[in-house]
Amino acid sequence: MNRPDPNIDELLSSFIDGELTDSQRADVERLIAYNPQVAQRLQQFQKIKMMVSSLPHVKSPREMVERIKASLAAEALSAEQPIYLDERKGMRQLLLRRVVAVAAMIALVAILGGVVYSILVPETAFERATMTAADVESLSDITTTVVFSGRLELKAGALPAVDAFINRAIEDNGLSDYVTKTAQPSNRLYSLNCSRGDLNSLLADLQGIWQRFGSTTLYVDTERFNVPVVVNAVTAEQTAEIINQDNPEKSIEAAKDFAILNNMAELMPGRQISAAIDNKGVDLIPIPKPVLTGGDRKKTEKTVTPESKRDVSLTIVVVGSE
């Protein structure tokens, strides 16, 4: 065949795709019948089309939906990250905070008494919880072997994004079998009954998004002592340290310590103690931080935790912001 005519090629290509009008189709059929070279060219195109269309159809990776959700969650969270464009402005703010810190120390003693009182008032603390009594009852099935039980309340601006992140963290740490989840329009509940090691791994993952929570409150269950402890503005590290204590009594003591410190930091002008706790500002009061384990965001083979070792019961409640 001579050099193929692009116009005829176009007609033949459209012919095999069924994209010609009836009259065009009749013209091509006549052309094929009278011109063997055109007929051969048509057959070549048909073979090419068949080769391409017979390529095997490949399915997408199984975990695609989860990957998309995690990616959306990460993007939603990063969009909320504050950006400091002017570093010098930050330095000026730091200097100002140092000055304010001195004044704050004077106010400290006066505030301390009120803080201790607020921690040890059970009714006030539980009134702030947004869960219904039925929710708590259904999710907090605490057995006598449990050495720690409590509830962690987190307020989040982007509830679906945070939900996706937590679900991913639960799955990555192989904790799906130890969690009961409940989703409501305004909140998400994750009731965990696992080992302290398991919970440490989960907290290590949550630490990455901790600063994005509007508020973080740990309610340490103290049924045996009839004195509940509420730790406001609790950090992931503090939560881990409270849970990792050798016995419930020590957990309560640690919770009280952190409650006092955090409440002081919240109430003081300049919030210097918050900076000190985060190691970002002035070292007014050095606070030892516990070491969290299992922070890597990679899925690991999880060995089944025996029931006897599942001695921690924690209900995480994520409440959407108004």
């Binding site: 490949v58 399915k59 997408s60 695609m64 990957r67 998309i68 959306l72 993007e75």
Partner: peptide
Amino acid sequence: NRIYNVILKMCTNPHDAAELTQETFV
């Protein structure tokens, strides 16, 4: 599956195709 399949045929690398499919849906 359909979007992944088209992307895979265009770029040939399964890892790149998975990333691009994810990016597409996001």
